[in-house]
């Protein structure tokens, strides 16, 4: 009979990711690494966005800016040394960011192995983050690869002269290469969503503001995302619609 006392097998704890070693490998530790590297990437992205706007000043100015990045600090510093310090820092931040993101995503998938049969729309404060952060990140990775091939190494860009940054930008967004522009704008949307959640999330992870300041960082985060997306988008749009030529 069902009301009889029955012995039953103890529940086995679910499969789990390997137990982390040391505080910095813990979920919060990795989250701090993700947040700090993410903020460095945000600073880079803002500087990059501002730098791109030189395109509106014409060929000489833009190329002088690009050359200036290479000769920064000369003759005190060797040629391109400043550029390489920035590049090494950027690569380190990107690797730390992607590594912590991958480890945390894998742990999260193990921590939530069974889906609910009944699913309701999310109702949390940053409810779009799950979809936009992880899928958006894949779009951003693809974009970064394309971007390096296009404007850094010029592998897929018709303008091979490294010193003609202006010409390369005009060539890549020329009207007949519209799919490149569309992909660029799509990647920007992904970046915008990433920043909209990422910036306030990083502040929450690093400094843990109170409820009032959390609301403020969410507003700032949205504003930065909008400015960054608009600042980047205006360049290809201006070139495609031949406002810059």
């Amino acid at each position: 009979m069902s009301t009889d006392l029955q012995t039953r097998t103890a529940a086995q704890p679910g499969e789990r990711a390997r137990a982390p070693q040391g505080p910095w490998r813990s979920n919060i530790g990795l989250k701090i690494i993700m947040a700090v590297s993410g903020i460095l990437l945000v600073l880079f992205i803002i500087a990059h966005m501002a730098g791109n706007l030189h395109v509106f000043e014409g060929r000489e100015e833009m190329n002088a800016y690009a050359a200036g990045l290479r000769s920064f600090g000369e003759p005190l510093l060797p040629h391109e040394s400043f550029l390489w310090i920035m590049r090494i820092g950027l690569i380190a931040a990107a690797l730390a960011h992607i590594w912590s993101a991958v480890v945390l995503t894998r742990r999260a998938m193990v921590a939530r192995p069974v889906r609910y049969a009944s699913r309701k729309p999310a109702r949390g404060e940053s409810r779009h983050a799950v979809a936009t952060m992880r899928w958006g990140a894949i779009v951003i990775v693809l974009f970064v690869v394309w971007h390096l091939l296009d404007l850094t190494w010029r592998t897929v860009n018709p303008v091979k002269d490294i010193h003609d940054a202006y010409g390369a930008v005009l060539a890549t967004f020329s009207p007949e290469r519209w799919p490149v522009t569309v992909f660029y704008l799509l990647a920007l949307v992904a970046l915008g969503f990433h920043l909209r959640h990422g910036i306030w999330s990083a502040v929450q992870t690093i400094s843990g503001p109170n409820t009032k300041w959390r609301g403020r960082t969410q507003a700032i985060s949205l504003a930065v995302a909008v400015v960054v997306v608009a600042g980047f988008a205006i360049v290809p749009l201006a070139v495609t619609f031949e406002l810059v030529s």
Binding site: P13, N27, L30, R112, R123
Partner: peptide, 10 residues
């Protein structure tokens, strides 16, 4: 075996 927080607020 709990996962990390992504600040979604659920």
């Amino acid at each position: 075996g709990f996962g990390g927080c992504t600040n979604t607020g659920e």
